[in-house]
Amino acid sequence: MKIIRENAPALALIGAMVLFPFAISLLTGEPIDAGTPKFWQGMLAQVFILAVYAISYDLLMGYAGILSFGHAMFFGAGGYVVGILLKHAGWSLPAATLAVILSAAALSLLIGVTALRVQGVYLTMVTLAFAQMMFVISEATDFREWTGAEDGLQSIPVPAWLSPTHQRLTFYFVSLAFCILSYYLVRRITQSPTGRVLVAIRENELRARAIGYNTFVYKLVAMVVAGIMAALAGMMNALWNLNANPNMLATSTTINALLMTIIGGAGTLSGPLLGAAFIHLLGYGLNVAFGPRWPLLFGLVYVAIVLFLPYGFMGAWRSWLLKRRLKM
């Protein structure tokens, strides 16, 4: 009973999300696998995938204080690995998923060992450079056979039971489960002793080292976990779009993670969730309202938030709660 009471808001949200497709179907009177319900299942499935990507970024930036500008490389790598394995190597989805996890672990270890040798803005630049290298390689014509160069890897054969076009409801529940599991996993990590050490590193790395923690190893762990999660999110994204393209590796994808994390509130776990939903839905709305000019508005909103709302929605909400409590 205690567990249920403590996690009531989260459980309520999960319940709402599970019931959501049926509710919309009831409200609009349309069948559950067509029309408006199908469209909104798709929108939310994308939000869930982006939320995992944002949470993985928050683990790095919000908790460990590692400002990486190369997060898109893991997202894109996940998409490309699953695409190439499913399309060209004919692997099954579970095997490809395992391969995504392993390759993301290897990649993040490699990047981590190199980039974590330097700190602060150096790390930012180095990770950006690595990501850009991957971006350039994904566009290189040498590997057109495998990656499709600048056109991207088109028509990935997704197994029929998970097809986002024909089995939308299944895809919805799979991505919901994926999101819940990832959230739970990261929550366990951040509440574990390891998570506390990560926060200590963010606050004062020198002191954490003086206490006797090998901060390099802890940061590497954060990097690998975040890398694997981002790669899995990239994989889901590729399955959803049925393709993997260089844009997944571009700097704008990293900026997207940053946006979702900052707007929602870095250093909290519900922040990135909120940010992902806000950005995806607002982006959709702005796109409908303003057409292709919407990224400009988006950028301005982002700049305004950095200037005036530095801790995001969650930060603003918490400080409002605190103020109200102090008054009472």
Binding site: L67, F69, V121, T124, S252, I255, L258, I262, R293, P295, L296, F298, G299, L300, Y302, V303, V306, L307, P310
Partner: peptide, 27 residues
């Protein structure tokens, strides 16, 4: 106008200039 208010919050300068990249390219 933009960076000066942020000298107290170093990481946010980077975030801001990155956002300006986005805005500038769009403009």
């Amino acid at each position: 106008a933009l960076i000066r208010p942020l000298y107290q919050r170093p990481i946010y300068q980077v975030l801001l200039t990155l956002g300006l990249t986005f805005v500038g390219t769009e403009i």
